[in-house]
């Protein structure tokens, strides 16, 4: 009896230790990156043009491209993913076709991003002739976002209690009116949280963009040209560490690392907390 209790105590201690390690590794990764990178961040670094050979270049175009490609890919993926998610949550039965769609969505979600990158290269660059460009990058990134957003949409819609729908239908509303006017507003908080988390993830995506958006940038800062090459922050970090020739590559890499960490902290904490609070208030439940 005594030994069982000691075992329990030891197991509990190990579990606490595991939790401390998990939180500790995360905290040390984040703090290390900020500690190394924050001193590098200056207005010149954040907005300046990159330099290929000399030290002292900035990452302005890369920062712009990161957000530009992210926004474009969200614009492409969200409407489709919303439609597909609503279909799976509100219409789909249990037939073979539904099974096939679910299997496809899950498969798409596990396709390695480098494979999506090669696919984007064949289709958007070789067949459609869009070139190594911001547009090709955004379209390929769309493929990565879609399955995640479909799942987010489906879960947010399923979380809305069925009596909301029944009340609306009983008042004579059609199914689509019910979905659009009753279910969607109530699914919105969950949807917003999910979209923000997805966007935060897509922001740091690299493998998919190297061969579709490229490793060079337009010479004009803030170029909205869809067909310009569009190296992003994450790709630039990889490029300067692996191939770049600039003497200050460590500083650049540290600076980009800090910028990326700050961005995901904003996406994950600042943007999702309002959504979570809204959700608690509107549904009166905890997630």
């Amino acid at each position: 009896m005594m030994s069982a209790r000691i075992c329990d105590k030891i197991a509990t201690a190990i579990a606490w230790l595991a939790a401390i390690v998990i939180l500790g590794v995360l905290a040390s990764f984040l703090l290390y990156m900020l500690y190394k990178g924050l001193p590098v961040l200056s207005w010149h670094f954040i907005t300046g043009m990159p330099s290929d050979i000399r030290a002292g270049g900035g990452v302005g175009p890369e920062l712009f491209n990161s957000f530009y490609i992210l926004v474009l890919s969200m614009l492409f993926s969200f409407p489709v993913a919303l439609g597909a998610g609503i279909y799976l949550a509100e219409y789909a039965g249990t037939g073979r076709v539904t099974e096939l769609i679910r299997l496809s969505t899950e498969s798409l979600a596990t396709v390695p991003s480098i494979v999506l990158g090669l696919f984007g290269m064949i289709v958007f660059i070789n067949y459609l002739g869009l070139g190594i460009s911001i547009l090709s990058g955004a379209l390929t990134l769309t493929l990565l976002n879609i399955p995640v957003l479909v799942r987010v949409t489906e879960e947010s819609f399923r979380a809305v209690p069925s009596y909301y729908r029944e009340a609306s239908l009983a008042l004579g509303a059609t199914k689509w009116q019910t979905i659009w006017r009753v279910v969607l507003p109530n699914a919105l908080p969950g949807l917003i949280t999910g979209i923000t988390l997805t966007a935060g993830r897509a922001m740091g995506e690299t493998a998919i963009l190297i061969f579709t958006a490229g490793t060079t940038v337009s010479r004009q800062a803030g170029d909205f040209d869809l067909f310009a090459a569009g190296e992003t922050l994450a790709v630039h970090l990889w490029y300067v560490m692996g191939i770049g020739l600039v003497p200050d590559r460590m500083e650049i890499a540290n600076g980009i690392g800090a910028l990326l960490i700050i961005t995901i902290l904003i996406f994950n904490l600042a943007f999702t907390i309002p959504g979570r609070m809204l959700q608690k208030r509107m549904t009166g439940t905890r997630q």
Partner: peptide, 30 residues
């Protein structure tokens, strides 16, 4: 409204079926 309802359904189904279309294209092209 009911007719609209039906077409919306087709549209949503098309969005969902796009998932199958994409994954098949990936398998075929790659």
């Amino acid at each position: 409204k009911l007719m609209y309802d039906r077409y919306v359904r087709y549209l949503l189904f098309a969005c969902a079926f796009l998932m199958t279309f994409i994954i098949l294209s990936i398998v075929i092209f790659v």
